[in-house]
Simulated scan of single mutants.
Amino acid sequence: MIFKKATISDLNEMQQLYIETIKSVCKNDYNPEQIEAWIYGVNNKERWIEIIEKQYVLLAIIENKIAGYGTLKDGNYIDFFYVHKDFQRQGIADKILTELELEAKNQDSKTITSDISITARPFFEKKGFVVKAEQKNVRLGAELINYKMEKEL
């Protein structure tokens, strides 16, 4: 596995991974209506382009495929964090998170935060994140629960 910074040419593959991962990995924690509302965000192309242009976007590459990625916004907020459905439980999330935490420290951040799905919460808790609040977001009429989580660096 190698790491590389994302470029605009990675956008379509990143979006495909986002959709497939949510549909596959999160299906036990969110119903089909919630999943459709969640993945609808892929249609906001301006937001995706802005992420690549303005955030620290780290891709984990295995055999020329994006196996996962994480983004760091403003040096202390994990905005996107996904591991491809075919690459689950191989330590990729651990490695991406370690790199994002190092980058946050390099940017002099003392804490790192994120809005974490029900599915990802156990992973982040194992990595030292604590729940600060349960959040209910309504998208396209569907209520999505996630957690504001934080970790001291």
Rank of each mutant, 00 (worst) to 15 (best):
N43A: 11
K27D: 05
E20P: 00
L59G: 02
A37E: 00
N43V: 07
K27W: 00
K4C: 12
Q55A: 03
S9I: 09
I19K: 12
N64Y: 08
A6N: 05
Y40L: 08
T71M: 10
A6F: 08
R47Y: 14
K23C: 11
T21M: 02
V57K: 02
F3S: 13
I49F: 06
I51Q: 05
K4F: 09
K54H: 09
D10I: 03
W48S: 05
Q16W: 07
Q34T: 06
A60V: 03
I66M: 10
Y56I: 01
K54A: 01
E36F: 01
L72M: 12
Q55L: 00
N44A: 01
D74T: 11
N44Q: 10
Y69R: 05
G41K: 03
I66Y: 11
K65F: 01
K23P: 02
Y18A: 04
Y18L: 06
E63K: 06
I52C: 09
A60M: 09
I39Q: 12
I49E: 15
A6V: 08
V57G: 04
C26E: 10
K4T: 10
E36G: 00
Q15Y: 01
T7D: 07
V25G: 01
T21E: 07
L72C: 10
E36Q: 03
K23R: 15
A6G: 08
E53R: 11
Q16K: 15
W48Y: 08
I35C: 01
K5F: 12
E50Q: 15
D74P: 02
R47E: 15
I39F: 11
I8G: 05
A6Y: 07
M14L: 12
Q55G: 02
K27L: 03
D10V: 03
Q34D: 09
Y69K: 05
S24Q: 04
P32L: 04
Y69A: 02
E13F: 07
V57H: 01
W38R: 00
Y40H: 15
L58T: 13
D10A: 02
T71Y: 11
N43W: 04
S9P: 02
D29M: 14
N64H: 15
L17M: 13
N28Y: 11
C26G: 01
I61R: 04
E36P: 00
K4W: 08
E36H: 00
E63M: 00
W38A: 00
I51K: 09
L59M: 03
D74Q: 14
I51E: 07
T21G: 05
E46L: 12
A37K: 00
N28E: 13
K54Y: 09
F3A: 12
K73M: 14
G75M: 04
S9Q: 14
I19M: 07
C26H: 15
A60N: 12
A60K: 09
K5E: 15
I61P: 06
Q34W: 04
A37F: 00
K45T: 14
N12T: 11
E20L: 13
G41I: 01
I39M: 13
E50M: 14
L11E: 04
K23H: 13
N43G: 14
N64L: 05
R47W: 09
Q16Y: 06
F3K: 11
Y69P: 01
I22T: 02
N64E: 15
I39E: 12
Y18G: 04
T7C: 08
K54L: 05
I49R: 11
I39D: 13
